[in-house]
Nucleic acid binder design. Structure first.
Lengths: 172, 172
DNA sequence: CATATGTAGATGCAATTGCAACTATATGCG
DNA sequence: CGCATATAGTTGCAATTGCATCTACATATG
């Protein structure tokens, strides 16, 4: 992954910070720093994980996300719109990603009885196998990049803080 | 922004976690959760910020990052490779982004005397103005999305945790 | 039933990204 | 100097993304 939208501190912002948060448009220096770190770190980590998969001759992270959801869903499969809710991919992105996954026989599309517009996506055996191989690499990346750098309680603290930044979606 | 590589918990990972971190490839449940949150939240936030810029008829975040670095650099400008170090963009991405910025007269390319291969990029007046207008929107996004959701000390705590996940680069 | 509106998903096209190769200048070294 | 290698930056081409639109089916309402 080589798209990096990295942000940096705005020099002027730290000069005069006085008013309370709710009344101002300019963020506090602390907010800017946290934002900048979040942007930079998340991109570095994604890139590292993507590189690891690439080095292993495996598909990109996006494929893992979809295969993971479908594996969890089991034989019943999921509707594309449910994948959109869970993964936050854009609609057209899911549409095309599923087409690629189907072309690789990692998923199959099934007509759904009670809604003529829809389809159900089900992971195949090959898809499960691919997901397993991806997890071997991806999981190692997570262990190295995050698990090895913070203690369990620090990881919990980080999760709690990030949770507060989350925006509600249909799935979580 | 509509590319979302969202990760989710691996169901099997939480079943039997016993060995110590250093010996295993499978990450702890806490590491997986922190990773998943980081991926999900960072993408949501980027998307929100990008949407805000789009709604304001402004260029994407990537432009801000480059304009910001160039504005900080002042009249001396920066070499493209310095921008790469600071922003973490891929080399070919910077090359083309600068071409677009130059086409919009937001930056100018200057031949550099002591290295015939290189060039120096300098922000123009129009570039500074565009950066200012972008910051009005972008800064508000940061204030709303991050500044308004965590206290100053929580923001500091978040920054410190994220710092530990950072990977060394030429610039930081 | 007929029309209007909403939802599920696909797709044409332009822009961007990623990869790999390429040009051009610089530097190290015999 | 002359060649090998490294660095700075660009570019052709394929793949992916984003936008806008489009088709098809579903649901609501008179």
């Amino acid at each position: 992954m080589h798209l990096h939208l990295v942000v940096n501190l705005d020099a002027t912002a730290s000069i005069a910070y006085a008013a309370t948060m709710s009344e101002r448009a300019t963020p506090s220096p602390e907010a800017i720093k946290a934002w900048a770190r979040l942007m930079r770190v998340s991109r570095q980590l994604v890139e590292r994980a993507e590189d690891a998969l690439k080095d292993g001759g495996l598909p990109p992270l996006a494929w893992y996300d979809v295969l993971h959801e479908l594996a969890e869903a089991g034989e019943g499969g999921l509707r594309p719109f449910q994948l959109i809710e869970r993964t936050l991919f854009a609609q057209y992105n899911i549409s095309r990603l599923l087409a690629r996954l189907e072309a690789d026989r990692l998923v199959e599309k099934l007509r759904v009885a009670d809604d003529g517009r829809g389809q159900t996506i089900r992971i195949t055996g090959k898809g499960r196998e691919t997901r397993r191989r991806m997890w071997a690499v991806y999981g190692r990346s997570i262990a190295e990049l995050v698990g090895a750098r913070l203690s369990t309680s620090e990881l919990d603290a980080l999760s709690r803080l990030l949770r507060r930044l989350r925006h509600p979606t249909a799935s979580d």
